[in-house]
């Protein structure tokens, strides 16, 4: 296609949007609503995933030694942990001595009478291990539990299973949301195709003339596609603006609530790091919705 023809077709499409103000506005608003919903869901998903990842990184494998562990048994466990650290499987670990544990228990009970008959000698030393990859926990736990000095009754603690379950539920939740989104997109495609059908109808005369003079299908189709793309893009820009405003407001509110609930490990992410990605997603989705909508409405009129 020649450049002057492209100019002409883009101009025609833009004129369609301007001439058809009310319907264009209605279509842009459907795109805004669809993308706003899409964006909020995406942002929720991004936040949940990043929080779960952060929680996983903070997870520690807790290994309790037996109360009467021998020095040899203790050294065995320690050298195992050291070797795994060198192999890059364990990122860091810390040791809680008997005294520290006694103090911790004392503090948490806050009542010395309950500690009668309970001394530092009754407590056990423990290791807190952080893993590079949380998914390697099963292997580490099974290996470490084989050491004689490790107290298997008190168990080796790790919260990964709970997080995995949570993730599983969230996955199902994601599928449901995706289904809703697809339905929403289909609805907006039809709304846009109806809008453009009106312009097509208003210009059926012109389309007919164009065909008799020998216009290529693409020549007839492009102004309407331009119209659809433009509606989609304008909806995307508007929706992006609304989403970013709403998100930034919500982010502040929710972060305050989380801090007050002492859940400060959970954070709502900043908008700016994802802004460009969100804008690209919005533009692509908006223009795809608009483009498909317009293709649907012109198709019928080309078969002469």
């Amino acid at each position: 296609m020649k450049i002057r023809t492209m100019k002409l077709l883009v101009k025609e499409g833009t004129n369609n949007v301007i001439k058809n103000k009310l319907m264009s506005f209605a279509s842009i608003m459907t795109v805004v609503a669809t993308l706003f919903f899409l964006g909020i869901i995406l942002l929720i998903a991004i936040n949940i995933t990043s929080n779960i990842e952060a929680m996983k990184r903070d997870l520690e494998v807790t290994v309790f030694l037996n109360v009467n562990v021998t020095n040899y048994q203790r050294a065995e466990v320690l050298s195992y942990i050291e070797s795994k650290k060198e192999a890059g499987i364990i990122s860091e670990y810390r040791i809680e001595t008997k005294e520290e544990m006694y103090q911790n228990i004392k503090e948490s009970l806050n009542d010395d009478t309950l500690l009668e008959g309970f001394s530092v000698e009754n407590t056990a030393e423990s290791f807190y291990i952080k893993l590079v990859d949380p998914n390697s926990s099963d292997e580490i736990i099974s290996q470490i539990s084989r050491f004689e000095g490790v107290n298997n009754n008190n168990g080796i603690g790790y919260g990964k299973d709970e997080l995995d379950k949570l993730e599983g539920i969230l996955k199902i939740f994601n599928y449901i949301i995706m289904a809703i989104l697809i339905v929403l997109m289909i609805i907006s495609v039809f709304l846009i195709s109806n809008t453009i059908r009106l312009t097509v109808f208003a210009r059926r005369h012109q389309i007919e003339i164009m065909k008799y003079v020998g216009a290529l299908d693409s020549f007839i189709r492009w102004p309407f596609i331009v119209e659809g793309l433009l509606i989609g893009f304008m909806g995307a820009v508007l929706s992006f603006f609304l989403t970013s405003q709403a998100y930034q407001w919500l982010q502040g509110v929710i972060n305050v609530i989380l801090t007050n609930l002492k859940l400060s490990t959970l954070r709502i992410m900043e908008f700016s790091p994802v802004a460009i990605r969100m804008f690209i997603i919005y533009s692509i989705f908006g223009m795809v919705i608009g483009g498909i909508g317009s293709l649907l409405s012109v198709r019928k009129h080309l078969n002469v």
Binding site: H205, E208, I209, K211, Y212, V213, G214, A215, L216, D217
Partner: peptide
Amino acid sequence: PHSEIPYLRRSLGVVFQDFRLL
């Protein structure tokens, strides 16, 4: 083929009873 129809029509000039001007 459908794609050749425009070229056939370019070799024709058409005049209608109802003019069909824009």
